[in-house]
């Protein structure tokens, strides 16, 4: 069972995560179907900027984050932004969206000028996340764990970051034991997604340059 302190940590992170939404008008724009490649590029760029802003708002609410060294705060978000966004996109893609919305979104991404070499692993990742049937709690905790990873470049006080990440990992592990008692590997599977995210992050920089060239 989760103790009182862990319950509080969980509900705090979930509440912060639930507030993590891009503005409605921007989400609507994504579903309008008339678009040229150039408009698509601009829109996806605008979306990414908005997602980073939302991500920072979430991160600021993570217990202890604002006590970290300011430059370490920036290094953590900078190192994890792409991974947190992939995780978020996976969640959105796996939701039951209104009829046809997934198709429009997928088409928009496929027509964005990004090479298939990058698109295919991304949609594979969405699929593997979908198979885990993660709850909102798991998404919130896994996102927090991704952001509070001490092994990002330029982190000065690794120990301070570890101290924030560890209790969240513990909560996730217990949460998995409670809610997935038929699958003892569930927690390990969730952590496995973090490895996949690292790979996607690694390819992201290359992906952007190829996109810009196109």
């Amino acid at each position: 069972e989760l103790n009182q302190e862990q319950e509080t940590l969980l509900s705090y992170i979930v509440e912060a995560y639930n507030k993590c939404r891009i503005p409605q008008d921007m989400a609507k724009k994504l579903l309008q179907d008339q678009f040229s490649t150039e408009e698509n590029f601009l829109l996806l760029t605008e979306m990414a900027t908005s997602q980073v802003q939302v991500l920072v708002e979430f991160t600021k609410k993570l217990p202890g984050f604002q006590t970290l060294d300011h430059e370490d705060q920036i290094a953590l978000i900078k190192g994890s932004a792409v991974e947190a966004m992939f995780l978020r996109s996976a969640q959105i893609f796996n939701r039951k969206l209104p009829q046809g919305h997934n198709v429009v979104l997928e088409e928009r991404i496929r027509k964005s000028g990004i090479s298939d070499d990058y698109i295919t692993p991304m949609f594979n990742f969405y699929k593997t996340v979908g198979e885990l049937q993660m709850t909102q709690e798991e998404h919130a905790l896994l996102t927090a764990i991704t952001i509070l990873s001490p092994d990002r470049p330029y982190i000065k006080d690794l120990h301070a970051v570890e101290k924030l990440q560890e209790p969240i990992l513990n909560v996730l592990q217990i949460f998995c034991k409670i809610h997935h008692n038929k699958d003892p590997q569930h927690f390990a599977r969730l952590l496995g997604r973090l490895t996949e995210l690292r790979t996607l992050n690694h390819h992201h920089a290359e992906m952007l340059s190829s996109w810009r060239m196109n």
């Binding site: 980073v52 802003q53 920072v56 708002e57 600021k60 920036i74 978000i77 340059s209």
Partner: peptide, 22 residues
Amino acid sequence: HSSNTIGLEAIIRKALMGKYDE
């Protein structure tokens, strides 16, 4: 790539300072 990284960092710095707070 480097200009993108600078762009990302600028967005993060502004957001951390609360410039996008509503």
